[in-house]
Design a protein around this nucleic acid. Structure first.
Lengths: 157, 157
DNA sequence: AAATTTAATGAAAGCAATTTTCATTAAAAA
DNA sequence: TTTTTAATGAAAATTGCTTTCATTAAATTT
């Protein structure tokens, strides 16, 4: 599951070194947890998972590390409407993971989709270029989410 | 600035009546504040603005009313990454206001854009149909945000 | 227009997610 | 191995928001 850079270190060690950040046990474990799930974990979720592996890690460190990873662009932070942040590895051993979300506004279920990405991609990059020019922004990322009712919740109503 | 329904009431009175909700002074003022700004107000912002007009309105009522308006579909709630909700009138006197956002990840500035909407719209609705079929969702809304650095923040780095 | 009903309100207390503080620990540099 | 200083964990603090409950005021009935 872990990918190596060919010099005996996981892929993200270089990024850390480059920024002057230390490679610590808690950081190693948090990244490991994130790289092994395909779910949308909250800070609490990460804490629980990390805690199972190494019970000494505190919740504070989880929050701090997630924040750091978001700053570095290694992790994305999402908001699905319940008021707690969700975290996902931006890219991982499996390669690029970019996807969009389909959120059920009733039960909160989140589906990742990549299916229409090819069609979307072209328009998105054109839009990005246009927006960047018009508003003088350097665009580095985007977020697309669709909201609605999943099959189960539709029936309930 | 206020639009009337031709029978002597602002446009939203009918919606309220239909749902059995009362038309009260705080609600009137909150809707008035929202209809007169083009900014992305937090609950606190709304509270401050409302307070200037009518100091008796409490923060609790502001939260409750905003929630009600979101439920009714009269107001949209957004999240721009600082962890507080922002509110915008869904449609107003000026007609439909649907737009997307361009968010500066450094200073938090938010630009609304509608420019590329025509091109986007068609792809979006195709995507919606496809997703709805594939994942068995009834899609009612979507969110598109681009993230990057605005001109000022790019220079600072 | 007055009385009645009940939804809406405001103040205070409560809550959950996240952040800050600060003394201690452990990476990494010397 | 020693030194430096970034990172950590526990506890306290903060923030954005929600709940509770006694009071007020819309809207309905008289």
């Amino acid at each position: 599951m872990q990918r190596w850079d060919g010099y005996g270190s996981p892929w993200w060690h270089g990024r850390f070194r480059g920024c002057g950040y230390r490679i610590t046990v808690p950081r190693r474990i948090i990244l490991d947890v994130l790289s092994k799930t395909s779910e949308h974990l909250s800070a609490e979720d990460v804490y629980v998972a990390v805690h199972k592996i190494y019970p000494n890690v505190g919740l504070t460190t989880v929050y701090r590390t997630l924040e750091l990873l978001v700053q570095m662009g290694l992790v994305f932070r999402f908001d699905f409407g319940d008021r707690k942040a969700r975290y996902e590895l931006a890219m991982g051993p499996k390669g690029m993971r970019h996807h969009h979300h389909l959120v059920c506004t009733d039960c909160g279920r989140v589906v990742d989709y990549t299916d229409f990405l090819d069609e979307e991609k072209e328009l998105l990059s054109r839009t990005e270029v246009g927006l960047a020019e018009k508003y003088n922004f350097t665009i580095s990322n985007h977020l697309i989410q669709f909201y609605g009712l999943c099959d189960k919740c539709r029936v309930k109503k």
